[in-house]
Design a binder for these strands. Structure first.
Lengths: 153, 153
DNA sequence: TCGCGATAATATGTATACTTACTATATCTC
DNA sequence: GAGATATAGTAAGTATACATATTATCGCGA
């Protein structure tokens, strides 16, 4: 269905292409992680991964680390705490801040998930050979670096 | 802030990079379109653009055209109808289907927005020169083609 | 033509994602 | 040390995005 011929303007635009890629990426992540017996979203995984490297950071720090805003991170943290993967305590140095730490269960989860997630990365860019895959990742990484340095606006 | 050194696993993965790009893309779209005096999201723009090329398609057809599911398209259509940019009528051939048509106001909107949206495409991939930009778009387009042909589930 | 599987929308519920506004704290400045 | 300013988190509201279930309708085959 949909006899190709994408005459639309949006179909030629990187913005639209990126949206499609994002969609597929999320979908495959969900499928594979679920098949492995877990109920973790891409964002939750990124949060756990960040928390493993910087235990005890507050929600604003986590927001910065995974490039989300504070409101979103607050919601994500709620779910991770509810699942028992992360613990949240009020900081002793700053009563405003909530320090997040990954729990043993959280550690176990990410350890089990790492190979699964590593594996599915190739699946989210179908149709590309190894060289093209690397090229894509390099270009995308270059953009995100440019965003981080100058894009703070 | 955030002294680079992205030691995390997810920061190296295309899935995560794509999420970042998607975010920036949406953000810039919003900014520029708003600055031009409109209140249209990327998805709403894609829907209008698709409708301009295939007036009278039903919601399922639009969902296929912009690669969203029917529930999402239903919500998007609600908002477009509410804004007066699209009209929705029950099909005479199939009482289940709702045919969507872009209104004059919708036409005027997309006509005014096209140059704006065309312009901002370069901004959503900062740090890339023209060759890299083209390369990125070519790779992304290749992936979406691969998704369309073989990726159906 | 009756029944049954397929399809179009809608309803419901979950999870992002961001904006703006508001509260509680910290910190900086005079 | 008090007031101004900035920051952490939450709350509320909007918009995607998708899965699943339900309803209405279609169309095919016996």
């Amino acid at each position: 269905m949909n006899e190709d011929s994408p005459k639309t303007v949006s179909s030629r635009m990187p913005g639209h292409l990126i949206r499609r890629l994002h969609q597929v990426s999320t979908h495959i992540f969900h499928q594979r992680v679920r098949a492995a017996g877990f109920d973790i979203t891409p964002v939750q995984f990124a949060a756990l991964d960040a928390l493993r490297h910087k235990p005890g950071i507050d929600q604003a720090g986590l927001a910065d680390a995974i490039a989300k805003d504070r409101a979103t991170v607050g919601d994500v943290a709620d779910r991770l705490v509810q699942k028992g993967l992360v613990s949240r305590t009020v900081s002793r140095h700053d009563k405003r801040a909530r320090e997040l730490t990954i729990t043993d269960k959280g550690e176990a989860t990410i350890t089990a998930l790492l190979p699964v997630v590593e594996q599915l990365q190739k699946e989210i860019l179908p149709g590309l050979d190894d060289a093209e895959f690397s090229q894509f990742v390099a270009l995308a990484a270059k953009v995100t670096r440019a965003i981080r340095s100058g894009g703070e606006r």
